[in-house]
Computed example of a mutant assay.
Amino acid sequence: MTRQVDRRTLSLQLLPMSVPDTPPVGQAGLATWGAVADTGTAPLPGLGLCPGEVAELLVRLEYQGDQPLPYQLQVSGNFPRSWYNLHTEGSELHSSHATEAVVRFRPEADFFEARQTLAPEQTLPLDFQGEVRAYQLSSAGQPGELMAREPFHLFLRPRSLYPQFLPAVYREVDFIGRFLKIFEQSFEPAVQTFQSLWAYLDPLTAPEALLPFLAQWVGWHNEATWSVAQQRSLIRRAMEIYRWRGTRRGLQLYLHLYTGLSLHDPTRSDLQQPIQIHTASQQGFVLGETDLGPMAILGGGKPLHFRVKLCPARGQFLDETLVRSIIEQEKPAVCTYDLEIVPIEEATHA
């Protein structure tokens, strides 16, 4: 059998951790919930909620009995069950020892946006009523006698910035804050975009959908095989690539941005660098330096010729066709070249 406990030995108090910014209109009409009436002069606890944000209601229990009391807390109300979670400390109350529990509320972030269009006679409820109840647990672990109960209110409001620019007398009116939120939702996205306009014009931070516009702005042609990170780097440094077009430095920079290979690795020798561009040093037939005779050979050299050697890490894929198109675009028209792509391990032993 479950022993009877005097209800007067248990007190329950609710402490809202966030209160409404403005007193909601009609709060006096919400002074009762179920069979419990607010007969005192103090108003019922009111917790302010914002969609997508966490608000806490602290539950404080004080027990004055002479023996430990097994208990259970329950939360009920006309709000969705998915809005809250109850966190308690143990399952027993001890004499002269305050125990605290927390009810964490978090309405869905799209509470207002997900609602369907309301008919003229319909309204969207923003004020809710609830109650915290403390039960004595039976020997079987089931809720038994109701020991204490305390009602509370929930006031769901969107987060609004505009009321802070009004005189205090207007900020106290709940309707004005909700009315200004309509204009805030229309104007604030444009204001935020204007304040961060620089981020939309920088290829490294701009939205992916804006990259084709930025590429066209600097006259850059994006290849379909390039990754988003490659597109951002190449568009951002397009003017620098244009400035050095036709030079070894320009070609090396372009290949570095596309392949991700280092421009220069100080830990490696010149013949082991990730990107190598060497000018051919052979000479062909030069009058005044070659004797004509049976063993003379005409030709044997390539004027204006250079050699490109790329040494990616093993497993890194480089599109040879795209690399050749980059070289053809950057080199002077009269130059010829050879391309060699060798993984770094093979290049080390070469």
Results as ranks from 00 to 15, higher is better:
Arg3Val: 15
Gln4His: 02
Val5Ala: 08
Arg8Lys: 14
Thr9Ile: 13
Thr9Glu: 15
Thr9Tyr: 12
Ser11Gln: 12
Ser11Met: 04
Pro16Cys: 03
Val19Lys: 05
Pro23Gln: 08
Val25Trp: 09
Gly26His: 03
Gly26Trp: 02
Gly26Lys: 10
Gly26Leu: 07
Leu30Cys: 00
Thr32Gly: 12
Trp33Ile: 05
Ala35Arg: 14
Ala35Asn: 15
Asp38Arg: 14
Thr39Gln: 10
Thr41Phe: 05
Thr41Lys: 01
Leu44Val: 11
Pro45Val: 09
Gly46Trp: 02
Leu49Tyr: 01
Pro51Arg: 07
Ala55Tyr: 08
Glu56Ile: 07
Gln64Tyr: 02
Gly65Glu: 12
Asp66Gly: 12
Gln67Pro: 03
Leu69Gln: 08
Pro70Val: 02
Pro70Ser: 05
Ser76Lys: 06
Pro80Tyr: 05
Ser82Met: 04
Tyr84Val: 01
Asn85Met: 13
Asn85Gln: 15
Leu86Pro: 15
Leu86Asp: 05
Glu92Gly: 08
His94Thr: 13
Ser96Gln: 15
Thr99Glu: 04
Glu100Ile: 12
Glu100His: 07
Val102Pro: 04
Arg104Ala: 10
Arg106Val: 12
Arg106Pro: 09
Asp110Ile: 02
Phe111Pro: 08
Glu113His: 11
Gln116Thr: 10
Pro120Trp: 11
Gln122Ala: 04
Pro125Gln: 10
Leu126Ser: 07
Gln129Val: 13
Gly130Thr: 06
Leu137Pro: 15
Gly141Met: 03
